[in-house]
Design a protein around this nucleic acid. Structure first.
Lengths: 224, 224
DNA sequence: GACATTAGTTACAGGACGTGACTAATTCAG
DNA sequence: CTGAATTAGTCACGTCCTGTAACTAATGTC
């Protein structure tokens, strides 16, 4: 082990806020009120005696309406890639906002479908990609899809959210059968009529403890 | 968005080096040659113009023999938890070392089975736990088990490595069938006789591209 | 040569999954 | 009022995957 000195670094906390808009994942970007053309992920310096997660929650709160329904660290980014600040190190967090949450109307913020994100600073682009990869990979372990939906939702909406995240179509019967076996939702006694067609029952997220899913091995390695 | 200033922070890179020793996961700890009783994860300050991953690799190289077979970021840790340095922020990396790699004999380093790790600084304890959780969760997506084995191994050794990481017994036939279907290994023409019993054929890790594993949904959420 | 030991394969039953076809409840057009 | 269109929800069946036990194969030991 070499000498045991830490080094001074300038750092930021950056937040990737995601929601679903019009059947697509969307990310909240911000630009300075001075009207320059540069959009960026919301970020700020951490404050003294404030945990990183608290910083991320504060930043999220300052740009979206209310707290995100879920927040988690993505990782630390730096390595010479450019950032809107001069910071050498940035810690990225990803937050999920339920779809339909009214967004601040000020022209300084906007939701961008992830296919239409304008050019970002390279480090922020990397953080965005990592955040999306992360929530897609965590769908099996965390209630990601549910945090992008309102508290009550129809099973069709839930399925569409999964299809959005997996970027692939699912079969209705299979989806519901799997859902049944997972004990994740419970029906409410409310129904929603979407205009034409039979009304759908509303469900809420209410996970029950289950046997630890005794499945054997998954050797789905390397989709190379 | 508040003011756009980044803040100066002292930071370190910490490395969780893991290997398998005697049927258990083990982590490399270091203590200062002055003979104080405090064991710790190897760490150092990042150097200017050195990427974080390069720092981690350098630190790993300085304490183990040769490069780890795999390295990946775990995340950023801080939040007031104590660290051997006075750094406010530490970025943790996890590295895997093939079992059987001769370790440096100097009394300053030792492999500790993860059940017998001595008391660490709280932040380092958190990093260790996160690193272990991370590689256990990543077994399905990355060749974690193979990086803990030598280049050539028997299928029984591979199965035992999976059992070690999953902390559960697997059935021989199921394991080999899944392995067959995953096109992950290829046989060599070498055999190893372990004393008594039929000799085992040696295999090497050689993943072949496969169709993207069309499996539907996995709703194995929340083992709560 | 019998036996213990470890490697590796085969066979079968039960469960999970993909799929298409079915029923149910509503709106809309005429 | 009636029937077509539309969306919700269920059922049934064939196929594949997985857990399991029993089997064969090759070696060392006595």
């Amino acid at each position: 082990m070499p000498d045991r000195k830490s080094r001074r670094f300038s750092s930021t906390i950056d937040v990737v806020l995601l929601t679903a808009v019009g059947g697509q994942l969307a990310v909240l970007l911000w630009r300075s009120p001075e009207g320059r053309e540069k959009w960026m992920l919301p970020w700020d310096a951490p404050r003294p005696a404030e945990s990183m997660e608290a910083s991320a929650a504060r930043i999220a709160r300052s740009v979206a309406v209310g707290d995100p329904a879920w927040i988690e660290q993505v990782g630390a980014f730096g390595d010479g890639k450019r950032h809107p600040s001069d910071a050498e190190l940035s810690v990225a967090y990803v937050g999920l906002v339920p779809m339909g949450t009214p967004s601040p109307v000020g022209g300084a913020y906007a939701w961008f479908p992830i296919a239409d994100v304008p050019q970002l600073a390279p480090r922020q682009r990397q953080m965005l990609d990592s955040a999306i990869t992360m929530i897609r990979g965590r769908m099996d372990q965390s209630p990601v899809a549910f945090r992008l939906l309102p508290q009550m939702f129809t099973l069709t909406e839930l399925q569409q959210m999964y299809e959005l995240l997996l970027t692939k179509r699912l079969h209705k019967a299979s989806f519901r059968r799997a859902l049944q076996g997972a004990w994740l939702v419970e029906p409410t006694d409310e129904w929603r009529s979407e205009g034409r067609g039979r009304p759908a029952q509303l469900y809420r997220y209410a996970p029950r403890k289950r046997r630890p899913a005794q499945r054997g091995i998954r050797l789905d390695l390397l989709s190379s």
